[in-house]
Amino acid sequence: MKKLMIWTCLLVLLTACSSTSEESGEESESPQDVTLVLDWTPNTNHTGLYVAKEKGYFEEQGLNVEIIMPGEAGADQLVASEKADFGISAQEALTKARVQDIPVVSIAAIIQHNTSGFASPQDKNIDSPKDFEGKTYGGWGAPVEREVISSLMKQENADAEKVEIVNMGNTDFFTAVERDVDFAWIYYGWTGVEAELRGKDLNMIYLTDYSEKLDYYTPVLTTNQKHIDEDPELVKDFTKAVSQGYQYAIDEPKKSADILIDAVPDLDPELVKASQEWLSPKYQDDAEQWGIQEKATWQNYADWMYENGLLDQELKADEAFTNEFLPEE
Rank of each mutant, 00 (worst) to 15 (best):
M1N: 11
M1S: 10
L4N: 12
L11I: 04
S18G: 14
E22K: 14
E23H: 11
E26N: 13
Q32K: 15
Q32L: 12
V34K: 07
L38D: 03
T41C: 05
N43W: 11
N45A: 12
H46C: 12
G56I: 10
F58T: 00
G62L: 13
N64D: 12
M69F: 11
G71A: 00
A73N: 00
Q77I: 00
A80Y: 00
A80C: 11
S81G: 00
E82C: 08
D85F: 07
E92T: 14
T95L: 06
K96G: 15
D101A: 14
S106P: 13
A109M: 04
Q112V: 06
F118P: 01
F118I: 02
S120Y: 02
D127R: 11
E133P: 10
T136D: 05
G139D: 03
P143A: 15
V144K: 06
E145H: 06
E145M: 05
I149K: 12
E156G: 07
N157P: 08
N157R: 09
K162A: 11
K162H: 09
V163C: 06
D172S: 05
F174T: 13
A176L: 12
E178M: 04
R179G: 08
R179H: 08
A195N: 04
A195K: 02
L197Y: 08
K200M: 13
D201S: 01
L202M: 11
S211D: 14
E212S: 04
D215A: 07
Q225T: 15
Q225D: 13
K226M: 03
E230Y: 02
T239Q: 12
Q244H: 03
I250M: 06
K254V: 10
D266W: 10
P269S: 09
L271V: 06
S275G: 01
Q276H: 08
Q276S: 05
W278I: 15
K282V: 08
Q289G: 09
W290R: 03
A296E: 13
T297V: 13
D303A: 07
L311K: 05
L315K: 01
F321N: 02
F325A: 15
P327Q: 13
